[in-house]
Amino acid sequence: MNLTISGHHLEVTPALRDYVLAKLDRVTRHFDQVVDINVLLTVEKLKEKDRRQKAEVTLHVKGKDLFCETSHEDLYAAIDELVDKLDRQVIKHKGRVQDHHHESPKRMNGAVSGSA
């Protein structure tokens, strides 16, 4: 798994890097087929009192790319929201990938009409 953490108008400190790694550990525990993760942390300076911290992630799994972004006044809160959203997307994707053992409705109807 490749992990890239970068900052825009922001220096990514070791504490911030460790925080992101700890949060992304939850996502990789739920789904282990993650190929690549790109995290971008941004500070938008609209006005001095209206500073917005933005976090976005692109997660590449086998066959699909998942993208999330959030913004908040606190960067750590934005990362928390981001990981919650990403975790929901990963669990949904995992369910779609693993849910291929049921009989399709098309085949069920064909079997019923074929036996009559």
Score class of each variant (00 low, 15 high):
L3M: 15
L3W: 01
T4E: 13
I5S: 07
I5R: 08
G7A: 04
G7F: 07
G7D: 08
H9R: 09
T13Q: 07
T13R: 05
T13V: 08
T13Y: 09
T13N: 06
P14A: 04
P14Y: 09
A15M: 06
A15V: 08
R17M: 03
Y19A: 02
L21T: 10
V27A: 11
V27T: 06
T28F: 00
R29D: 11
H30P: 01
Q33F: 08
V34S: 11
V34K: 07
V35N: 12
V35R: 14
D36W: 09
D36A: 09
V39I: 15
V39L: 15
L40D: 08
L40H: 15
T42S: 11
T42N: 07
K45D: 02
L46T: 13
K47S: 15
K47V: 07
E48F: 00
E48H: 10
R51I: 03
R52E: 07
K54R: 14
A55W: 01
E56R: 14
T58W: 00
H60W: 10
H60Y: 06
K62S: 14
K62Q: 12
K62F: 12
G63V: 07
G63C: 06
K64Y: 03
D65H: 08
C68L: 05
E69K: 12
T70C: 05
E73Q: 12
D74M: 05
D74L: 08
L75M: 15
I79T: 03
I79M: 02
E81H: 12
L82S: 02
V83W: 00
V83D: 03
V83T: 06
V83M: 04
D84H: 12
D84F: 13
K85P: 05
K85Y: 00
L86Y: 05
L86W: 02
D87N: 14
R88Y: 15
R88T: 05
Q89A: 11
V90H: 03
K92A: 14
H93A: 02
K94D: 03
K94W: 00
G95T: 08
G95L: 04
G95H: 08
R96E: 01
V97P: 01
Q98A: 10
Q98H: 09
D99E: 13
H101M: 09
H101G: 15
H102L: 11
H102W: 01
E103G: 11
S104M: 13
S104C: 06
K106L: 04
R107K: 12
R107V: 13
M108Y: 10
M108S: 12
N109P: 01
N109I: 15
G110W: 15
G110Y: 14
G110F: 12
A111R: 15
A111I: 08
A111G: 00
A111H: 14
S113L: 14
S113T: 12
G114A: 11
G114F: 11
G114Y: 11
S115Y: 12
A116L: 15
